[in-house]
Amino acid sequence: MNSHPSDSYLRTDRLPHLWCPGCGIGATMNSFVEAVKLSGISRKSLAVVSGIGCSGRVAGYLKADSFHTTHGRAIPFATGLALANPGLRVAVYSGEGDLVAIGGNHLLHAARRNVNIMVVCINNFTYGMTGGQLAPTTPIGSITATTPYGSTEMPCNLVNLAASAGAVFVARWTVFHVRQLACTMAEALVRRGFSFIEVLSPCPTLHLQRNNLGHGETEMRYFKEYSRVANNTSPVEAGLDRRDRKIIVGTFVKRERAVFFDSPDSVTLVRKKKVKA
């Protein structure tokens, strides 16, 4: 039997991975491998940076130069990596707790600066690795380990957050949308600037089970049934509320803006000074 067509992109000596049965993170990684193939970027130039948590383990399974950093700091690490080595294509791959809660400030400012990194944010509505606590995206009313009577916090609309902070490419898919996700990731890989892709993913062990929402397969059916592809939707209108029975997916923002440390103006200015000096 031949090996899996994605094996050369994986650290196969570390498989099977640690994610639970029915978890979607592995499927997003599958799409990411497809995206790398589709994008045509050089294998050697790819660097993957993760933070902490279940999604933070992605870096450890991809056969690329990969960095598993501290909680919340994947984006600043990636910023330094990308600036110091502009030949790299740097992808940050982490979860919503890592990127938006503890690392939220870095997300805002990297988007604002338009740092040339691509961010894949797995949103599974909870903190998986630590045992299912409240996340910035946990829906109102959801039971988590730290909101045993149901969350009363308004969840964060991640695509709106990224877009309003200045990201030049913003998209959302679910784990069910594997083909679309692969194409979107490929597009982000070849674009310059700060791109943000939210991927909704089932957490069967904690979020789904605690809230009587079934298992991974059930959630995938939910994603399939209630997702509406609506490209160019204003991210403000793309909030997620389970009671709406509607998940807006697609590419919401595509725009061009000067990339951090790409600006021809600043380079020219410095060069002029250099000549004078």
Binding site: V49, F67, T69, T70, G72, R73, I75, P76, F77, A78, T79, G80, L81, A82, L83, A84, N85, L88, N105, H106, H109
Partner: peptide, 13 residues
């Protein structure tokens, strides 16, 4: 937090 982590990233770069 970001400053030192950007430096660490740059070192690996």
């Amino acid at each position: 937090c970001a400053s030192i982590m950007a430096c660490i990233g740059a070192v690996w770069g």
